[in-house]
Design a protein around this nucleic acid. Structure first.
Lengths: 321, 321
DNA sequence: AGCAATTACATAATTAGTTATGTAAATGTA
DNA sequence: TACATTTACATAACTAATTATGTAATTGCT
């Protein structure tokens, strides 16, 4: 299939489907070769009954990774072919216990020993001719996808790529409106604008910058979609507070919060800070988890002008992070 | 999937199907992640149109390895989604030429560059974590199955195993009936019993053994299912003739002909023969091809008592075979 | 003991493909 | 040039799976 050299790996699903179809088709011919009246799709159910003995439909389905209705159908088909008997008596009257018939046991033994050995050897032959072991590779994929799904892995790549297109810049007067708008957006979604908010958002120069603080803006493809402030505190314990972090919903999943957070921390360090303070609300789950990821620890009892603040945290810059 | 450690490789098809289903399911979620209104099954058709430009249904089907009706359906679905326009004018009025719309081209470019890159990297990550490369392994299987199908490989294993259960023994009087029956079976199927046949089949001792010939019997699981004779000739050029080879239809595909042939040749060699002669009929294709495989060469002009003989061959034992 | 929740399964509807078949257009041939 | 064959496609019927849904039996809880 030359096609797949051109598509790249995003066609993995299609490519696998074609190979699967080809192999299933051959399997059918192989059963004919052995003159067994057997359909390849029966195999997993058949094998489980052979290997584990009589059991209910759902139990089989779980073992072979099929849906329960699929097993129901297959059991009925095999019953018709005389390989299986179902509706065996069991205490639980909901259960439909299936088991191999004598004929089924005979076919199974023959199929799994004789035929299985020939097929194993044929496949081992292909594996020996190849430099990459398909059988082992599939096993590894089953395991690795169990650990972390393909979706998750792609998500991470996406985030990584997009975070490379995020640029952090210093506040300039032209960003005044967006600084206000992005913050108002999340505040009004969950809470109400408080008096302290108004002051800072309407006069960032006066209330933040001129007092020795910083404001940064995150650009995604040159569009300002995130803001964050480092505010000088007048406190015996803390030098700076990280506050007014806001990311546009349009820029979610681009790692912007993390990038701005790291930038703010570095800035604080350069300004000689040893501890950073912040306050937030536990309603804002992604934010809280970001703070923990950055190394912030929960503290208690610091006075705050904000009504919505129900959690307070600090980051100790003297420790390695 | 622990199941597949127990089944052995004959469950390869089932195992592949499960992996394919899982990956297709994830692919669907990945498209949602990128907010593209796109179904994974469209991908091969979509890609071909992107890569090769406008073309007819059948041409697409051939390239992607799908059936033509499948492509017809997919093209219609994509047309409905506004990604493709079909029924484009073409000289050949039977043809339904499809092409990407402007929207389709935009989506394709974005999908294949940006999304494709993320997916490629995610899959490369899995491949890097694994010790066996699934992508390469699939490519190798596509190639190797093209060379020699799985069916053929299994057939060979079967033949090999069964030929190990074939035992060649010397003629004994108890095999007189089967010697006659097996020969009569094939002769009457294609030709008629001739006078010369009757003599040899009814009196093998007198006409074959006592004249210095040999008869061997091939047993499959102790059942006599094949016979062959080495007949002493009274001829200036040839010492022996290989004749009366017969294999029961029940024993077809067990390599019996080859095994008996080799045995006869070895016997002749031990008896000091330098050349073996045989005659046959070109109607008997498997037999003729067996003789060629054994090293026999076609010759012409030797006198024969048989009407059905239309081909004559010899094997030179002085040459390495 | 009585009722809600869960479980085990069957059945129906849906999905993504296939093979089989029909038909019009194009091509090949006597 | 007429007619048979082939090609290109659509449509129908089938296959092997899925998800959705309904129902009876069992279990869990107060």
């Amino acid at each position: 299939m030359d096609l797949f050299n051109r598509t790249g790996k995003m066609a993995l699903g299609s490519r696998l489907r074609l190979l699967t179809a080809k192999i299933t088709e051959e399997a059918d011919k192989i059963y004919k070769l052995y003159k067994v009246d057997f359909s390849p799709k029966w195999f997993p159910v058949f094998f489980v009954l052979y290997d584990e003995g009589a059991q209910g439909i759902t139990s089989i389905a779980e073992q072979i990774g099929h849906s329960q209705p699929s097993v129901t159908k297959i059991v009925k088909e095999m019953a018709k072919a005389g390989l299986v008997k179902d509706n065996l008596r069991s205490k639980d009257k909901r259960k439909n216990v299936a088991d191999l018939t004598e004929k089924g046991k005979y076919v199974a033994a023959k199929m799994i020993t004789i035929q299985g050995e020939d097929i194993d050897k044929a496949i081992d032959g292909i594996i020996a001719e190849a430099t990459h072991n398909l059988w082992e590779a599939i096993g590894e994929w089953e395991f690795l996808l169990e650990q972390r799904s393909l979706l998750k892995r792609v998500e991470e790549q996406k985030k990584l790529r997009e975070s490379q297109e995020v640029q952090i810049v210093e506040y300039e007067p032209k960003y005044k409106a967006i600084f206000k708008a992005l913050n108002e957006e999340w505040i009004t979604t969950y809470f109400e604008i408080e008096e302290t908010d108004k002051k800072a958002l309407n006069n960032p120069e006066e209330y933040i910058l001129n007092k020795g603080g910083k404001i940064i803006v995150a650009l995604y493809k040159n569009e300002p979609l995130g803001v964050c402030a480092l505010i000088k505190m007048d406190d015996p314990e803390y030098d700076y507070e990280m506050a007014k972090m806001a990311v546009s919903p349009k820029a979610q999943g681009k790692n912007m919060g993390w990038l701005m957070g790291q930038h703010i921390v570095n800035t604080a360090r350069q300004l000689g800070a040893t501890k950073i303070y912040l306050e937030s609300n536990t309603l804002l789950k992604p934010a809280i988890s970001l703070y923990y990821k950055m190394g912030f620890q929960k503290i208690q009892g610091h006075p705050t002008p904000y009504q919505r603040a129900n959690i307070q945290m600090e980051l100790d810059l003297t420790q390695n992070n």
